[in-house]
């Protein structure tokens, strides 16, 4: 799908840049102001409000998305930087009505309370598990050390990610042994 072309300049006379970006598998060609942060692009231009904003210092990770498969903080990226890139957000985790194992894990292990940090936590976990499919507890804790949660005390988030890791290993291994 393509989004309609916006004017080439903003009301303040700023030059706009056309970017082509694939978000959760759908292509978008959009004109953006250079200073538009990726998180605002996702939330305001594309209306995908699952990605949240929790700070202004690249500290909290509520805005985490996958950029070409790697978890990054979308508040510290300009949308122009992701031209030609592929972005994955929380909205793309569920496929064909089936929850992603990380979503299942957070629900089953009570890995969320207010839900505000949750999308960022889950995207961090998805990016991390792609590089480390059988992590230890400490490795999970390190992996989410750039994501702050104020509600859960992290214990159940760690369990949720471990749940997803096991589930993601299942097809290859039949069942997921405790590798730790």
């Amino acid at each position: 799908m393509a989004v309609e072309t916006a004017p080439a300049k903003t009301t303040t006379g700023q030059k706009l840049h056309r970017i082509h970006v694939v978000v959760n598998g759908a292509a978008h060609d959009v004109d953006v102001e250079p200073r538009t942060l990726l998180v605002h692009f996702l939330r305001e231009n594309l209306g995908m409000t699952g990605t949240h904003i929790g700070c202004d210092t690249t500290s909290c990770g509520a805005c985490t998305v996958l950029l070409n498969g790697r978890a990054v903080k979308s508040c510290t990226l300009f949308a122009v930087q992701v031209d030609q890139a592929s972005i994955a957000t929380v909205e793309g985790l569920e496929k064909d009505g089936k929850l992603h194992p990380i979503q299942e894990g957070f629900h089953q292990e009570h890995g969320l309370q207010c839900g505000f940090c949750t999308p960022g936590m889950m995207m961090t976990a998805v990016g991390f598990l792609a590089t480390n499919p059988a992590p230890t507890e400490l490795q999970i804790r390190e992996a989410i050390s750039g994501n702050l949660c104020r509600c859960t005390g992290y214990v159940n988030i760690v369990k949720s990610i471990d749940y997803a890791a096991r589930k993601l290993r299942e097809p290859a291994e039949g069942k997921a042994p405790d590798v730790r």
């Binding site: 690249t58 950029l67 990054v72 903080k73 510290t76 990226l77 750039g146 994501n147």
Partner: peptide, 9 residues
């Protein structure tokens, strides 16, 4: 350096 997400960029 910073945290794992920052290190990805």
């Amino acid at each position: 350096v910073a945290d794992p997400l920052v290190r990805n960029m």
